[in-house]
């Protein structure tokens, strides 16, 4: 699985700052799991698309409401975007996604052929 996202946290004028969310990718017997840290976003603000081999994640981050004076700022993200290229052996029709505690978990199930098989010795 390759990650082809190039856009970083290069904020132009400080208004829009789309960040590449940090990701963990691991493989279990039955699936590949991608976990992305996307704090400040909401389930409804996350979009996940799969087109051919391209899995695309984007999300908006809630802004502050008015009446606030920011005294100290480190949270500058206004959105998230990341693209993954899927390899062979992934069932395109069986993708699960869950957004919880600011973390998006995408589960990509393996095709039956890609799953490890135990061969009995006669």
């Amino acid at each position: 699985m390759k990650d082809i996202t190039l856009c970083g946290s290069s904020a132009g004028n400080g208004v829009v700052n789309i960040v590449t969310p940090r990701a963990d990718v691991y493989e279990t017997q039955e699936a590949y799991v991608i976990r992305l840290d996307m704090p400040g976003s909401r389930k409804e603000a996350v979009s996940l698309t799969l087109e051919g081999d391209i899995l695309q994640v984007s999300a908006d981050v809630d802004r502050y409401d008015g009446g606030l004076t920011i005294l100290h700022r480190e949270l500058r993200t206004t959105g998230y975007h990341r693209v993954f290229t899927l390899g062979e052996g992934i069932d395109r029709d069986k993708v699960d996604a869950l957004f919880d505690e600011g973390v998006l978990t995408v589960k990509l199930f393996k095709t039956p052929e890609a799953k490890p098989r135990t061969i009995t010795i006669n």
Partner: peptide, 22 residues
């Protein structure tokens, strides 16, 4: 973790980025 500190008329608020923390 990254932190924002903001002020309103009657309170201060601190926001801490803690994704995936229970």
């Amino acid at each position: 973790p990254a932190v924002d500190i903001a002020e309103r008329e009657n309170e201060y608020s601190v926001r801490v980025e803690l994704p995936g923390v229970t």
